[in-house]
Design a protein around this nucleic acid. Structure first.
Length: 817
RNA sequence: GCCCGAGUGGCGAAACGGCAGACGCAGCGGACUCAAAAUCCGCCGAGAGCGAUCUCAUGUGGGUUCGAUUCCCACCUCGGGCACCA
């Protein structure tokens, strides 16, 4: 191509339109008086030192295509962007390279900003935010105070997950298989004073609302599993007083999902940490029990939770009474029972629970069957626990014998409640959210401890509590934050009594920063309020949210919880923050997900420099459906490039063809408008792009350069290749931005053709095609089919048994033999 | 172990229960060129046949149906989540 005046040069075009958009405020909706507000949100990035990688770009482009499409449909689309820049990621990296995070983060943000602009996102940069900005974390602290004042934040000494490498506490959600999610170090148990949010109070609502929101099913399932609802009963086992050792009577409540098996409870097991263990242990068992408790406490959570098949445990010498049978049952402790779940104690029913069966077998404890199938004797021996009990009936259960399992559950629970020995309860797997971190790089928790007044909230007028710029920000093994080494910072007068008091030195979890950022975007310029009521009413809840499923149970659950709390406290009118959520797929490279931690990231900058952002955007979106992700390899990028160049040439050669267009082409035109819109709405960008390519192929074949068609083509291409489309639009004489052109409307009647190529099957095998009018009556189609020579070869001389005709789809002639 | 996804040409993929492989990449043949690149035209699942055509083919095995990539049952493989949660 020697004619430079007519070749497409992405660098120039893209730079030109980036400048135009900034100049004209193209991407800045009227935040106060939008006609049709549409909040298009993408999960904000953590600004890593490596920069935005191809996996990020895939997700951001996916969200941006949708936002631009909505814009073309006439919505006032608000597409904000920001940076989730606090947290251990940034801090650890700063430690590694020997810099202060406060120096590092602004550089990373600058780099991300450059990249995000370069990929052509429709971001409203006026409202950009960083969670590390005091103007932002002031309100994160405010949020904490609202929960604190409402009694939804509390401090307790608790067994927490401690990462000895990151030297901090982790939330349960940040522990994977007993390993630290970030660095893979085995997590230890420590007992520390920690701040918690009462998310468990919201478990029922968090679960129930899942049925009311339009979210990816995978995400909702993940949340349901995480919430882990179990319905069952709490049953109290009494331990009679022991006069010889002067021990009083005690009672041990247990939680079970199988109250129907109560009569089969032949022993009990307590968690080693259970508070009753010390009281109930008999003197002769004390040495052995103490040793076991100690050993269990020393075990890290990996050893305790995974891998171990061998059951261990010790008898503590006490006997409790089975409330249904009145028989004594021995009380054991074992580390397969967890203090954090239920009551920390179980009734063991070895006949119908695998773990209890293994334990009973190992220690020679009694096994009594209480459920039997048809033809099974009540005394039939068990080779293994029988947990599948469909159609089984209760046996060895006295007055409850003969009931089916479900009926037995109800009957026994009712009987327990009447006798004051138990009640129906619902348990959740969810724990309260531990939000304190013994680290530096986060918002200080705004509480002051006074010897006279106790924990006091920092007055809202004193916010933000600025994170001091200390040099020795590295964590240590002490279990306290680096801020605790700075007296000059933490000694302050008590806000209530004025006496010397000390600040909380822990900072809050990064997930608190990100749990409310969507509220800040529309109100980012207000200094005196976290989120403006009018702006929030206009823009929230978020219309469409796109993000990674790795946040299904972390970020997305916390954000929902906080919205509910703010709703209860009267700050928000809604309780579900994201009306529609779609999880994008992951970009895989060399067999595993592209991520910094796996070291397989590809930075898009070089590709963009070589091909242009538009071509690269189209290439990524053409890979496959957004929700499925795909393998990254750069083979194939030539396709979108050739396509855009073809369209470019077409734009240079347009002509007015008046009403001369072929009927077939008009049909394609309308069908493409429709298909492309429907596919984008469903996030099937790959087939939307394919439809545009098909249209171009047909236009080329027909030698068509019709101006109106080319203009539509450019508009439909705009979500994918925004700079390119703007340039073409301008060259076609369009006024303003192509994004104000409106999505081309289609006529349903024109989108289908009058003549149909109808496939003809003979006994279910396709043999030929015949041309018939659209919606042809069966007789017409049948006559045409039976007249076709290719069909007659299979039907001649045979009896037609039946004809199946699906108008406009197919005709199937079923013949005998 | 349990709960979600997904298995289709050399590759990325497409297909309201109705022509399997749209669209694209790579490859092959040709045109243009001194030549190469770019561009344009044609071919492109496997097997048989000179051919029009025929047979086989959507992870495996069954089933429902006139007809199954699609629905049902069992199994295999690969991703992801949960996991001693009582």
């Amino acid at each position: 191509m020697t004619d430079h005046s007519d070749s497409y040069r992405p660098d120039e075009v893209e730079a030109k339109w980036r400048a135009r958009w900034a100049e004209r405020g193209t991407n800045q909706p009227d935040l106060d008086h939008p006609r049709r507000p549409f909040y298009n949100l993408m999960m904000f990035p953590y600004p890593s030192a490596e920069g935005l990688h191809v996996g990020n770009m895939f997700a951001f482009t996916g969200s941006d295509v949708y936002g631009r499409f909505k814009r073309l449909q006439g919505y006032d689309v608000f597409e904000p962007i920001g940076f989730d820049a606090f947290g251990i990621h940034s801090e650890n990296y700063a430690i590694k390279v020997g810099l202060h995070p406060a120096q590092l983060i602004p550089k990373n943000i600058a780099n991300f900003t450059r990249q995000l602009e370069r990929i052509g996102g429709m971001f409203d940069w006026r409202q950009a935010l960083s969670t590390t900005d005091p103007e932002y974390y002031k309100w994160t602290q405010w949020l904490f105070l609202q929960l604190f004042k409402a009694g939804k934040a509390y401090k307790k000494k608790a067994a927490v997950n401690w990462c000895p490498n990151c030297k901090t506490v982790l939330a349960n959600e940040q522990v994977e298989h007993g390993l630290c999610e970030r660095c893979g170090t085995p997590v230890e148990q420590r007992f520390l004073e920690q701040w918690f949010f009462r998310i468990t109070e919201y478990a029922e609502r968090l679960l129930g609302n899942l049925d009311t929101i339009d979210w990816s099913e995978t995400t909702r399932t993940a949340q349901r599993n995480w919430l882990g609802k179990s319905e069952g009963a709490e049953i109290v086992f009494e331990v009679p007083a022991e006069p010889s050792s002067r021990r009083a009577a005690e009672s041990i409540p247990v939680f079970t999902t199988r109250p129907d098996t109560l009569c089969g409870a032949t022993f009990m097991v307590l968690a080693p940490e259970h508070p009753l263990v010390a009281k109930l242990t008999t003197p002769d068992r004390k040495a052995e029990v103490d040793a076991y408790v100690k050993a269990a406490a020393a075990k890290d959570l990996v050893a305790r939770k995974v891998g171990e098949k061998e059951k261990t445990g010790v008898f503590i010498g006490a006997y409790a009474t089975n409330p249904a049978t009145g028989k004594p049952v021995p009380v054991w402790i074992a580390d397969y029972v967890l203090m954090e779940y239920g009551t920390g104690a179980i009734m063991a029913v070895p006949a119908h629970d695998e773990r209890d069966f293994a334990f009973a077998t190992q220690f020679g404890l009694g096994i009594v069957r209480v459920l039997a199938g048809a033809g099974q004797a009540a005394g039939a021996p068990l080779a293994a626990a029988e947990t599948e009990v469909d159609g089984f009936r209760l046996v060895n259960s006295g007055r409850f014998d003969g009931l089916e399992a479900e009926a037995g559950k109800r009957a026994i629970t009712e009987w327990l409640a009447g006798a004051g020995k138990g009640k129906a309860v619902v348990q959740y797997r969810l724990h309260d959210w531990c939000i304190s971190r013994q680290r530096y790089w986060g918002p200080p928790i705004p509480v002051i401890y006074c010897d006279a007044c106790g924990p006091v909230a920092v007055p809202e007028g004193d916010l933000p509590v600025i994170l001091p710029p200390i040099e020795d920000f590295r964590p240590d093994d002490s279990g306290v934050s680096p801020l605790a080494r700075h007296e000059e910072w933490y000694y302050v007068p008590c806000p209530d009594c004025g006496r010397r008091a000390r600040r909380e030195t822990d900072v809050s979890d990064t997930f608190l920063d990100s749990a409310w950022y969507y509220l800040r975007y529309p109100s980012a310029e207000f200094h005196d309020r976290p989120f403006d009521p009018a702006r929030t009413r206009t823009w929230c809840p978020v219309t469409t949210y796109i993000g990674g499923n790795e946040h299904a149970v972390l970020h997305l659950l916390y954000a929902r919880f906080l919205a509910m709390v703010l709703n209860d406290l009267g700050h928000l009118a809604f309780e579900e923050p994201f009306t529609r959520f779609r999880a994008h797929g992951l970009i895989v490279k060399d067999g595993s997900k592209m991520s910094k931690s796996r070291g397989n990231v590809v930075i898009p900058d070089e590709y963009i420099a070589q091909w242009g952002a538009d071509t690269f955007r189209m290439y990524l979106m053409f890979l496959g459906p957004l929700q499925e992700g795909g393998d990254f390899r750069d083979a194939g990028i030539n396709g979108p490039r050739r396509f855009l160049e073809r369209v470019w040439l077409m734009v240079g050669a347009v002509e007015d063809s008046g009403g001369e267009l072929r009927k077939e082409l008009v049909t394609r035109w309308h069908a493409t408008r429709k298909k492309c819109a429907e596919d984008i709405e469903a996030l099937r960008y790959n087939t939307a792009i394919a439809a545009l390519m098909e249209l171009v192929n047909h236009m080329k074949e027909a030698g068509c350069h019709d101006k109106a068609m080319v203009r539509d083509l450019v508009v439909m291409l705009a979500p994918f290749a925004p700079h390119f489309a703007e340039e073409c639009w301008e060259r076609l004489g369009g006024a303003g931005s192509v994004f104000d052109a409106g999505w081309p409307a289609w006529d349903e009647a024109l989108a289908v053709s009058d003549e149909i190529e109808l496939p003809v099957q003979v006994s279910g095998k396709t043999r030929s095609k015949v041309s018939v009018p659209r919606n042809a009556p069966e007789e017409v189609a049948k006559a045409a089919a039976l007249a076709d020579p290719a069909v007659r070869r299979f039907t001649d001389g045979k009896e037609v048994r039946k004809v199946i005709y699906v108008p406009n789809r197919l005709i199937n002639i079923v013949v005998a033999g």
